[in-house]
Amino acid sequence: MDEFSFIKWIKSNQKKDRNVIIGIGDDCASIRINDENMFLVSTDMLVEGTHFDLKKNTPGEIGSKSIACSISDIAAMGCSAKYAVVSICFPHETETEFARELYRGINKMADAFSIKIIGGDIVSGKKTLVVNVTIYGRNEGLKTISRSGARADDALMITGELGGSILGKHITFKPRLKEGLLLNKKFNINSMIDISDGLAADLGHILEESRVGAILYEDEIPISEDAKELARKTGFSALHHALYDGEDYELLFTLSGRESQKLLASKSFPSRLSKIGYIDKSKGIRIVDTYGNQKK
Protein backbone atom coordinates (compact mmCIF):
# COMPACT_ATOMS: atom_id res chain seq x y z
CA MET A 1 0.00 0.00 0.00
CA ASP A 2 1.16 3.55 -0.79
CA GLU A 3 1.00 5.20 2.63
CA PHE A 4 1.09 8.79 1.38
CA SER A 5 -1.60 8.26 -1.27
CA PHE A 6 -3.83 6.73 1.39
CA ILE A 7 -3.28 9.75 3.67
CA LYS A 8 -4.28 12.05 0.79
CA TRP A 9 -7.43 9.99 0.29
CA ILE A 10 -8.28 10.26 4.01
CA LYS A 11 -7.66 14.01 3.91
CA SER A 12 -9.94 14.44 0.90
CA ASN A 13 -12.80 12.78 2.78
CA GLN A 14 -12.73 15.02 5.86
CA LYS A 15 -15.23 17.78 6.54
CA LYS A 16 -13.85 21.27 7.14
CA ASP A 17 -13.93 22.83 10.60
CA ARG A 18 -13.12 26.51 11.05
CA ASN A 19 -11.32 25.77 14.33
CA VAL A 20 -8.91 23.28 12.70
CA ILE A 21 -6.13 25.60 11.53
CA ILE A 22 -3.76 22.80 10.47
CA GLY A 23 -5.26 19.39 9.78
CA ILE A 24 -4.27 16.09 8.18
CA GLY A 25 -0.96 16.11 6.33
CA ASP A 26 1.33 18.01 8.70
CA ASP A 27 3.42 16.97 11.72
CA CYS A 28 0.63 17.99 14.10
CA ALA A 29 -2.95 19.14 13.94
CA SER A 30 -3.46 22.68 15.24
CA ILE A 31 -6.83 23.51 16.78
CA ARG A 32 -7.91 27.03 17.69
CA ILE A 33 -8.71 27.66 21.36
CA ASN A 34 -9.04 31.44 21.02
CA ASP A 35 -7.50 34.23 18.94
CA GLU A 36 -3.94 33.63 20.21
CA ASN A 37 -3.84 30.08 21.57
CA MET A 38 -3.65 26.83 19.65
CA PHE A 39 -3.92 23.27 20.89
CA LEU A 40 -1.61 20.83 19.08
CA VAL A 41 -2.04 17.07 18.81
CA SER A 42 -0.06 14.32 17.07
CA THR A 43 0.15 10.55 17.30
CA ASP A 44 2.82 8.01 16.35
CA MET A 45 2.66 4.22 16.29
CA LEU A 46 5.81 2.09 16.61
CA VAL A 47 5.65 -1.53 15.51
CA GLU A 48 8.05 -4.34 16.34
CA GLY A 49 10.16 -5.31 13.35
CA THR A 50 9.61 -1.97 11.60
CA HIS A 51 10.63 0.70 14.12
CA PHE A 52 12.62 -1.36 16.61
CA ASP A 53 14.18 -4.80 17.01
CA LEU A 54 13.62 -6.72 20.23
CA LYS A 55 16.87 -8.61 19.64
CA LYS A 56 18.91 -5.41 19.47
CA ASN A 57 17.01 -2.80 21.48
CA THR A 58 16.28 -2.78 25.20
CA PRO A 59 12.73 -2.20 26.47
CA GLY A 60 13.86 1.16 27.86
CA GLU A 61 15.18 2.23 24.46
CA ILE A 62 11.94 1.22 22.79
CA GLY A 63 9.92 3.21 25.31
CA SER A 64 12.17 6.24 24.95
CA LYS A 65 11.91 6.23 21.17
CA SER A 66 8.14 5.77 21.20
CA ILE A 67 7.53 9.10 22.89
CA ALA A 68 10.54 10.90 21.37
CA CYS A 69 9.02 10.47 17.89
CA SER A 70 5.88 12.29 19.03
CA ILE A 71 7.85 15.02 20.80
CA SER A 72 9.71 15.57 17.54
CA ASP A 73 6.41 16.29 15.81
CA ILE A 74 5.69 19.11 18.26
CA ALA A 75 9.26 20.38 17.76
CA ALA A 76 8.60 20.64 14.03
CA MET A 77 5.75 23.07 14.75
CA GLY A 78 8.00 25.27 16.92
CA CYS A 79 5.76 24.77 19.96
CA SER A 80 5.72 23.28 23.48
CA ALA A 81 4.87 19.67 24.32
CA LYS A 82 2.72 19.31 27.45
CA TYR A 83 0.89 15.97 27.84
CA ALA A 84 0.92 12.46 26.42
CA VAL A 85 -1.42 9.47 26.24
CA VAL A 86 0.28 6.08 25.81
CA SER A 87 -1.29 2.89 24.44
CA ILE A 88 0.61 -0.41 24.26
CA CYS A 89 -0.22 -3.82 22.85
CA PHE A 90 2.01 -6.37 24.59
CA PRO A 91 2.37 -9.96 23.31
CA HIS A 92 0.68 -12.45 25.66
CA GLU A 93 3.99 -13.86 26.92
CA THR A 94 5.45 -10.46 27.91
CA GLU A 95 7.05 -10.46 31.37
CA THR A 96 6.04 -7.79 33.87
CA GLU A 97 9.61 -6.48 34.26
CA PHE A 98 9.91 -6.00 30.48
CA ALA A 99 6.70 -3.92 30.51
CA ARG A 100 7.90 -1.86 33.46
CA GLU A 101 11.28 -1.17 31.87
CA LEU A 102 9.60 -0.05 28.65
CA TYR A 103 7.38 2.34 30.58
CA ARG A 104 10.38 3.62 32.54
CA GLY A 105 11.95 4.53 29.19
CA ILE A 106 8.82 6.46 28.25
CA ASN A 107 8.76 8.24 31.61
CA LYS A 108 12.44 9.16 31.48
CA MET A 109 12.09 10.85 28.08
CA ALA A 110 8.84 12.54 29.13
CA ASP A 111 10.48 13.88 32.31
CA ALA A 112 13.41 15.26 30.30
CA PHE A 113 10.95 17.55 28.50
CA SER A 114 8.54 18.16 31.43
CA ILE A 115 5.75 16.22 29.72
CA LYS A 116 3.08 14.58 31.87
CA ILE A 117 1.59 11.21 30.90
CA ILE A 118 -2.12 11.52 31.60
CA GLY A 119 -3.60 8.23 30.40
CA GLY A 120 -3.67 5.54 27.74
CA ASP A 121 -4.57 1.91 27.22
CA ILE A 122 -2.84 -1.44 27.78
CA VAL A 123 -3.94 -4.55 25.85
CA SER A 124 -2.38 -7.90 24.96
CA GLY A 125 -2.17 -9.62 21.60
CA LYS A 126 -0.76 -12.75 20.02
CA LYS A 127 2.73 -11.80 18.84
CA THR A 128 3.63 -8.21 17.97
CA LEU A 129 4.61 -5.40 20.35
CA VAL A 130 3.02 -2.09 19.35
CA VAL A 131 3.42 1.26 21.13
CA ASN A 132 1.29 4.28 20.27
CA VAL A 133 1.84 7.72 21.78
CA THR A 134 -0.51 10.66 21.32
CA ILE A 135 1.02 13.95 22.36
CA TYR A 136 -0.56 17.29 23.14
CA GLY A 137 1.07 20.69 22.93
CA ARG A 138 0.43 24.42 23.12
CA ASN A 139 1.70 27.26 20.99
CA GLU A 140 2.06 29.55 24.05
CA GLY A 141 1.10 32.56 21.93
CA LEU A 142 3.58 31.68 19.17
CA LYS A 143 2.61 30.93 15.59
CA THR A 144 2.42 27.27 14.62
CA ILE A 145 4.90 26.54 11.83
CA SER A 146 3.48 24.33 9.09
CA ARG A 147 4.98 22.60 6.07
CA SER A 148 3.13 24.86 3.66
CA GLY A 149 4.81 28.24 4.21
CA ALA A 150 8.01 27.89 2.15
CA ARG A 151 8.56 30.78 -0.27
CA ALA A 152 10.71 31.21 -3.34
CA ASP A 153 14.23 32.40 -2.41
CA ASP A 154 13.95 31.07 1.15
CA ALA A 155 17.13 29.55 2.52
CA LEU A 156 16.87 25.85 3.30
CA MET A 157 18.45 24.89 6.62
CA ILE A 158 18.86 21.87 8.86
CA THR A 159 19.95 20.99 12.38
CA GLY A 160 22.52 18.30 13.13
CA GLU A 161 23.84 15.66 10.73
CA LEU A 162 22.14 13.13 8.48
CA GLY A 163 22.36 9.49 7.46
CA GLY A 164 23.22 6.14 8.94
CA SER A 165 20.65 6.39 11.72
CA ILE A 166 20.13 2.61 11.63
CA LEU A 167 23.52 2.27 13.37
CA GLY A 168 22.00 3.69 16.53
CA LYS A 169 20.64 7.22 16.25
CA HIS A 170 17.19 6.01 15.17
CA ILE A 171 16.65 4.54 18.64
CA THR A 172 18.64 6.93 20.88
CA PHE A 173 17.98 10.37 19.36
CA LYS A 174 16.88 13.37 21.42
CA PRO A 175 14.06 15.35 19.80
CA ARG A 176 14.89 18.94 18.86
CA LEU A 177 12.12 20.49 20.97
CA LYS A 178 14.39 23.18 22.46
CA GLU A 179 15.70 24.07 19.01
CA GLY A 180 12.22 24.26 17.47
CA LEU A 181 11.00 26.60 20.18
CA LEU A 182 14.09 28.79 19.91
CA LEU A 183 13.72 29.06 16.15
CA ASN A 184 10.08 30.06 16.51
CA LYS A 185 10.70 32.58 19.29
CA LYS A 186 13.77 34.32 17.87
CA PHE A 187 13.49 33.97 14.08
CA ASN A 188 10.85 34.21 11.38
CA ILE A 189 10.59 30.60 10.17
CA ASN A 190 8.36 30.10 7.14
CA SER A 191 8.08 26.29 7.11
CA MET A 192 9.45 23.35 9.09
CA ILE A 193 9.34 19.55 9.30
CA ASP A 194 11.19 16.86 11.25
CA ILE A 195 13.15 14.35 9.21
CA SER A 196 11.60 10.96 9.81
CA ASP A 197 11.26 9.69 6.23
CA GLY A 198 14.60 11.05 4.97
CA LEU A 199 15.82 14.45 3.75
CA ALA A 200 14.63 13.97 0.17
CA ALA A 201 11.20 12.65 1.17
CA ASP A 202 10.53 15.21 3.90
CA LEU A 203 11.77 18.10 1.78
CA GLY A 204 9.35 16.77 -0.82
CA HIS A 205 6.51 17.14 1.70
CA ILE A 206 7.39 20.82 2.24
CA LEU A 207 7.64 21.42 -1.51
CA GLU A 208 4.32 19.73 -2.25
CA GLU A 209 2.44 21.58 0.50
CA SER A 210 4.08 24.92 -0.40
CA ARG A 211 3.87 24.37 -4.20
CA VAL A 212 7.52 25.26 -4.78
CA GLY A 213 10.79 23.52 -5.67
CA ALA A 214 14.29 23.37 -4.18
CA ILE A 215 17.97 23.45 -5.05
CA LEU A 216 20.28 21.41 -2.78
CA TYR A 217 24.06 21.78 -2.69
CA GLU A 218 25.48 18.32 -2.03
CA ASP A 219 28.70 19.72 -0.52
CA GLU A 220 26.65 21.57 2.12
CA ILE A 221 24.58 18.61 3.32
CA PRO A 222 25.88 17.63 6.78
CA ILE A 223 26.77 13.94 6.47
CA SER A 224 27.18 11.98 9.70
CA GLU A 225 30.07 9.65 10.48
CA ASP A 226 27.48 6.86 10.69
CA ALA A 227 26.46 7.54 7.09
CA LYS A 228 30.10 7.25 6.01
CA GLU A 229 30.52 4.02 7.96
CA LEU A 230 27.33 2.56 6.52
CA ALA A 231 28.40 3.53 3.00
CA ARG A 232 31.46 1.33 3.35
CA LYS A 233 29.17 -1.64 3.98
CA THR A 234 26.31 -1.02 1.56
CA GLY A 235 28.03 0.23 -1.58
CA PHE A 236 25.83 3.35 -1.62
CA SER A 237 27.46 6.75 -1.17
CA ALA A 238 27.39 8.54 2.18
CA LEU A 239 25.40 11.28 0.41
CA HIS A 240 22.80 8.69 -0.62
CA HIS A 241 22.38 7.69 3.02
CA ALA A 242 22.10 11.33 4.10
CA LEU A 243 19.37 11.92 1.52
CA TYR A 244 17.30 8.78 1.92
CA ASP A 245 17.92 6.90 5.19
CA GLY A 246 15.35 8.59 7.41
CA GLU A 247 14.80 8.52 11.18
CA ASP A 248 17.33 11.28 11.83
CA TYR A 249 14.68 13.42 13.56
CA GLU A 250 16.53 16.62 12.75
CA LEU A 251 14.63 19.80 11.86
CA LEU A 252 14.46 20.92 8.24
CA PHE A 253 13.19 24.48 7.81
CA THR A 254 13.03 27.49 5.50
CA LEU A 255 13.43 31.18 6.21
CA SER A 256 14.40 34.30 4.30
CA GLY A 257 18.01 34.80 3.32
CA ARG A 258 18.29 37.70 5.74
CA GLU A 259 16.89 35.64 8.61
CA SER A 260 19.27 32.78 7.78
CA GLN A 261 22.26 35.13 8.05
CA LYS A 262 20.97 36.33 11.41
CA LEU A 263 20.55 32.72 12.58
CA LEU A 264 24.00 31.63 11.43
CA ALA A 265 25.54 34.64 13.16
CA SER A 266 23.93 33.73 16.49
CA LYS A 267 26.35 32.26 19.00
CA SER A 268 24.04 30.38 21.35
CA PHE A 269 22.12 27.95 19.15
CA PRO A 270 22.30 24.52 20.86
CA SER A 271 23.01 22.35 17.79
CA ARG A 272 24.88 22.39 14.51
CA LEU A 273 23.20 24.41 11.74
CA SER A 274 23.74 24.06 8.00
CA LYS A 275 22.39 26.03 5.05
CA ILE A 276 21.97 23.34 2.39
CA GLY A 277 20.18 25.13 -0.44
CA TYR A 278 17.26 27.35 -1.26
CA ILE A 279 13.66 27.32 -2.41
CA ASP A 280 12.73 28.26 -5.96
CA LYS A 281 9.57 28.34 -8.08
CA SER A 282 10.31 25.23 -10.14
CA LYS A 283 8.82 21.91 -9.10
CA GLY A 284 10.89 19.09 -7.60
CA ILE A 285 14.37 18.84 -6.11
CA ARG A 286 17.56 19.52 -8.03
CA ILE A 287 20.98 18.76 -6.58
CA VAL A 288 24.06 20.79 -7.45
CA ASP A 289 27.27 18.73 -7.25
CA THR A 290 30.84 19.80 -6.46
CA TYR A 291 31.38 20.92 -10.06
CA GLY A 292 28.23 23.02 -10.31
CA ASN A 293 26.27 20.46 -12.32
CA GLN A 294 22.58 20.06 -11.62
CA LYS A 295 20.87 16.68 -11.35
CA LYS A 296 17.46 15.48 -10.20
Rank of each mutant, 00 (worst) to 15 (best):
K186C: 13
Q261E: 15
D226N: 14
K108Q: 13
G141D: 06
I276W: 03
K82D: 08
P222W: 04
T94R: 00
D197Q: 11
S30T: 01
I88Q: 00
L273K: 02
V85E: 15
K8R: 15
A201I: 13
L230E: 05
P175W: 01
K267Q: 15
Y249C: 03
D154M: 08
G119F: 03
F90S: 02
S268G: 13
D26H: 07
L263I: 08
G23C: 07
E140G: 01
V130W: 00
Y249R: 07
S237R: 09
S274F: 10
L199Q: 05
A150I: 09
I189F: 09
H241T: 11
N139R: 02
I166L: 12
E250Q: 14
A112L: 09
I135V: 08
K143W: 05
T159F: 06
L167H: 01
E93C: 12
K56L: 15
N37F: 00
K143C: 10
A81P: 08
S64Q: 10
I285H: 03
F52H: 07
A201M: 06
A99Y: 00
G235C: 12
N13I: 04
R147E: 12
I33L: 01
N190K: 06
H92D: 15
E208T: 13
E140A: 04
V47T: 14
G160A: 07
D26F: 08
E61F: 08
G23P: 04
K143F: 09
I285F: 04
S87D: 00
D73M: 13
L251G: 06
K116R: 08
R151T: 12
M1D: 11
I135K: 02
E3I: 14
A110R: 00
G257S: 11
A150Y: 05
E48H: 09
